[in-house]
Amino acid sequence: AEKTGIVNVSSSLNAREGASTSSKVIGSLSGNTKVTIVGEEGAFYKIEYKGSHGYVAKEYIKDIKDE
């Protein structure tokens, strides 16, 4: 099942092309942005936001229960 997560940073969080800190940054998400978690790979979540996919470090995403 898809989960919703909240970007848990004070400034912004980089979204990357792949599940690695050396992957190209494809965008950034500001704190408290809601994202859909579609998968996980190592220390990263694969997320969907406004129709695009990217990878973000798990430690900066807070899971919330689907309402």
Rank of each mutant, 00 (worst) to 15 (best):
V25E: 04
H53R: 04
N14I: 15
G27Y: 13
E48C: 14
L29T: 02
K58W: 02
T4I: 12
S22K: 10
I37G: 00
I47E: 04
K24S: 08
K46F: 07
N8H: 10
E2H: 15
I61T: 00
S11T: 14
G54W: 12
H53V: 14
D66C: 14
N32I: 06
K34R: 13
T4W: 11
S23T: 06
E48M: 12
G42Q: 02
E2L: 15
G39H: 02
A57K: 11
V38H: 04
N8P: 04
V56T: 00
K3W: 14
K34N: 04
S12I: 12
T33H: 05
I61W: 02
E2K: 15
K3C: 14
F44Y: 11
G39Q: 03
S30I: 13
G27F: 15
S11F: 07
G54L: 08
I37S: 00
A15Y: 15
T33P: 02
V38R: 03
I6R: 08
L13I: 15
S23C: 10
I64H: 05
E59H: 08
S30P: 15
I26S: 03
G5R: 03
T36F: 12
Y45P: 05
A15C: 15
H53D: 04
K34C: 13
G42I: 00
G31L: 09
S12M: 11
S22G: 09
N14P: 15
I47H: 01
I64K: 03
Y55C: 04
K65C: 11
I26A: 01
I47A: 01
I26E: 02
K62G: 10
E41A: 07
R16K: 05
N8C: 15
E67W: 11
S10G: 11
Y45K: 04
K62H: 08
Y49V: 05
K50V: 05
N32G: 15
S11N: 12
E59M: 11
T36V: 14
G42F: 02
A43S: 10
V56L: 05
K3L: 10
T33S: 10
V35T: 00
V9D: 05
K3Q: 07
I64M: 07
E48K: 14
Y49G: 00
D66L: 13
D63H: 09
A19D: 02
T36R: 14
T21F: 14
K65M: 11
K46C: 10
L13F: 02
K65Y: 10
E41M: 07
T36G: 03
S28L: 12
A57W: 09
V38G: 00
S12C: 15
I47G: 02
V7Q: 03
V7D: 01
E17L: 08
S28M: 12
Y45R: 04
S20Q: 05
N32P: 04
L13T: 10
S11P: 11
A1F: 14
E41Y: 09
S52Y: 10
T21H: 14
E59D: 08
N8D: 09
G54V: 13
G31W: 09
E41D: 10
S23N: 04
V25G: 03
S11R: 11
K58N: 01
G27E: 03
Y55D: 00
K65L: 11
D63R: 09
